[in-house]
């Protein structure tokens, strides 16, 4: 178990291409941190630098208080779960789990004990003597995690471990990883491009964009107070509505209505409203804005209504029994509106 700290960590390739810019991050012992962002945001590179699979060109990485920039991956006391599992195809499951321990010259009994224990935790005891090719995707995923567990490392590193599974299995495995981490209490860094996976798993989220950190916080912090339009659009599904609006003294004017903001700003702002944070009201209600309907998606528990507000696309989630006409009059829930600087996209207030 160990804390991991990144100080001004950057990565540039030989051609001068910079993919990671000066990242500062302190991960506490036992914490589950998820790096999330679109593809190409540098999240995998960052994880691979922690693992020692990529060289660190700027800054320092420490694991458990030890600077590891020049330390071989095997000496960093970490374990990694790969997207394609990277199981050794010619070895049985047992041999796959034991390989790293054998290389460390661990005693045979101890290896057996650890493999059996991991197999029991992950319920893979029944196919310890099979080769990976005889296993299903979900089983391979478990073996890959088993290989990480037996090492009893200071940290687990997950590189999009669920993205090769089908949707149903992904949800199930997500739950298992969460329980497993809670039970073992091992510091974990998890990389994903799936915001839902990030929200459900993380103690803390690190949202990355273009090699820089956009925001660090608990899932609820990030959801409730996105630091930028990028985070606002990336986290949450269906995505937050973002529209240009004119503000006066902390009130945004849009679609004939008035939306109070947290900060007392004036001028052009980007207004953010989550689809679930608006409520339909009668026509003529003070401050309500008008949504012109385009189409409706029935989701069962609720319906998702798509349309436009002053020509901008806008979606709102309504109860499934809501009555609809050609237009809807909407007001935001109190305190639910987000204001962002129209130029920088940074959160206001």
């Amino acid at each position: 178990m160990a804390a991991i700290t990144l100080e001004a960590v950057g990565k540039s390739y030989a051609g001068g291409v910079k993919v990671v810019h000066s990242i500062d991050l302190a991960i506490e012992d036992g914490e589950f941190v998820v790096l999330v962002g679109p593809s190409g945001c540098g999240k995998s590179t960052l994880l691979r630098m922690v693992a020692g699979l990529e060289t660190v060109t700027e800054g320092q990485i420490s694991i458990g208080g030890r600077m590891v920039n020049e330390v071989e991956p095997a000496e960093r006391d970490i374990a990694m779960v790969f997207q394609n599992y990277a199981l050794y195809p010619h070895m049985t499951v047992r041999q796959n789990l034991a390989y790293g321990l054998k290389n460390r010259k661990m005693a045979k009994d101890e290896i057996t004990r650890r493999v059996d224990e991991a197999a029991q935790i992950l319920e893979i005891g029944a196919f310890l003597d099979r080769k990976p090719r005889a296993l299903s995707g979900g089983q391979r995923q478990r073996v890959a995690m088993g290989r990480a567990i037996v090492r009893e490392p200071a940290a687990f590193l997950f590189d999009e471990p669920l993205s090769n599974l089908d949707a149903k299995l992904r949800v199930q495995m997500r739950g298992e990883i969460k329980q497993l981490q809670a039970r073992l209490g091992t510091t974990s860094i998890y990389v994903t491009h799936d915001q839902l996976e990030a929200m459900t798993l993380a103690h803390r989220l690190v949202v990355l964009n273009g090699g820089r950190i956009e925001q660090v916080g608990t899932p609820l912090e990030v959801y409730r107070k996105p630091a930028s339009t990028f985070v606002a659009a990336f986290i949450g599904s269906p995505a937050m509505n973002l529209l240009e609006a004119r503000a006066e003294g902390g009130v945004a004017h849009v679609g004939g209505g008035r939306v109070p903001l947290e900060a007392a700003v004036s001028g052009t702002v980007t207004l953010g409203l989550r689809p679930e944070d608006v409520r339909p009201v009668d026509a003529g209600t003070d401050g309500a804005f008008v949504l012109k309907l385009a189409y409706v998606e029935e989701l069962g528990a609720q319906k998702l209504v798509h349309g436009t507000v002053e020509g901008h696309k806008f979606a709102c989630a309504l109860p499934s029994d809501a009555l609809l006409g050609d237009e809807l009059h909407l007001v935001p829930e109190p305190g639910a509106a987000h204001g962002f600087d129209a130029q920088s996209g940074k959160r206001l207030g």
Partner: peptide, 21 residues
């Protein structure tokens, strides 16, 4: 796949061990 070599490195295998094993 490259990941196999990376997994082996994390598992503590050097160049010759990776080749043999």
């Amino acid at each position: 796949p490259d990941e196999l070599m990376e997994a082996a490195r994390i598992d503590g295998a050097g160049p010759m061990k990776f080749f043999w094993d």
